[in-house]
Design a protein around this nucleic acid. Structure first.
Lengths: 200, 200
DNA sequence: CAAATTGATTTCGTTTCGATACCATAATGT
DNA sequence: ACATTATGGTATCGAAACGAAATCAATTTG
């Protein structure tokens, strides 16, 4: 290999680089990087996934740290807390009006506008590749995978909506595109790679 | 848009997610995420780019923070400091033997192995897309772009080597694949988007 | 019903990070 | 020649993030 380093290394490092570069803010941003990630997560995840534990898995941190980030957003009035009726321990967070409004100022907007200028086919290919990489990596790292219900093996589509075998519930058209914490990739091996309690 | 969120948003957030997920270590790693990034950077960049300032730009942080990260790696004996002869202020860092050895334990290896299982065409497409996004994003953020000399507009290839008009120097085969801080993408507008001193 | 598990939170100490100020050298302008 | 400005690098400090561990309540398991 005469190149300084080969294609595979270059891709991996580009992913890390892009992931960090695109969240840097020009001036002073309203939120920190962790808070942005949290706000985005609660905006994109379905109802049963908008919990502190799920966010902790998604953000690859402890539940304690996740709880702190969530508390700060709640203090800003960007997300609202709802207790679960079925489970007295569990809580769920929804974005408030100001939370949804703030998403428009997401520093990821720069990357979004670049992607908007991309060819549609290139964009689709990129999405497919990155999705597969993300779920494969989750399996490899023995972490929980996150994906959209419409790509999940638990999901059987009907017209305009579908049924999730995992949650045993019919999903509306607005739910099937959201992130789910019990996502199972067609590629991955085991349905629920939940390990024993390690607080990670 | 009936989906919970559209393709473009999903891609942007996948990039951030992948970038964070692939650097998380299963057990205890030898280095922190920032230290790994720094070690990788000094391994991939050409001689004139292996400076604290260039790393600060690359890592989208301040020179002060970059200096701390570098100091810690220097303390571990993973990189070695060399003063510049032409400029009394500038320093350059090279990987030591143990630094090169440690790169084999890079946590990015997980992502690398997944990429290795990819189709070659898919991999090439991914590299092309990510490279373009990275340099376009740098222009948009008014940040310094980083790319390989062989893709730079300052570079005119000869057989097996080439000439860099920016550094006004002939480049050997081992240099043209390395990252350069004065990289100019064929797409971007201005050669040196160096802004005034903002310490970012 | 006891024991183990799970979801969430709190606290504490450590590390990292960004902002700022600072010093040394180099380039620029008059 | 001299002052001014720009640049490369470092040190310091406070805020944030983080991991680890302890705690509490609700649920599940045996």
């Amino acid at each position: 290999m005469l190149d300084g380093f080969d294609t595979i290394d270059r891709i991996a490092e580009l992913v890390v680089h892009l992931g960090r570069a695109c969240r840097s803010e020009d001036g002073h941003s309203d939120l920190t990087a962790a808070q942005w990630t949290c706000l985005r997560f609660f905006a994109r995840a379905n109802a049963s996934t908008r919990t502190p534990s799920a966010f902790a898995s998604f953000h690859a941190t402890t539940r304690g740290t996740a709880s702190q980030i969530i508390k700060s957003l709640e203090g800003c009035g960007l997300i609202a807390r709802h207790r679960s009726e079925s489970d007295g321990r569990s809580v769920r967070f929804d974005l408030t009006g100001s939370g949804r409004a703030l998403l428009a100022a997401d520093p990821l907007g720069d990357l979004n506008s670049l992607l908007g200028a991309c060819d549609v086919a290139e964009r689709q290919a990129l999405l497919a590749t990155l999705s597969r990489l993300a779920s494969s990596l989750a399996v490899l790292k023995k972490a929980r995978a996150f994906g959209t219900c419409q790509d999940c093996t638990h999901f059987t589509p009907a017209n305009d909506s579908g049924f999730c075998a995992c949650m045993a519930a019919k999903l509306g058209a607005d739910e099937i595109g959201k992130l789910c914490g019990s996502y199972h990739s067609p590629a991955g091996p085991m349905p629920h790679p939940q390990t024993t309690r390690t607080d990670r």
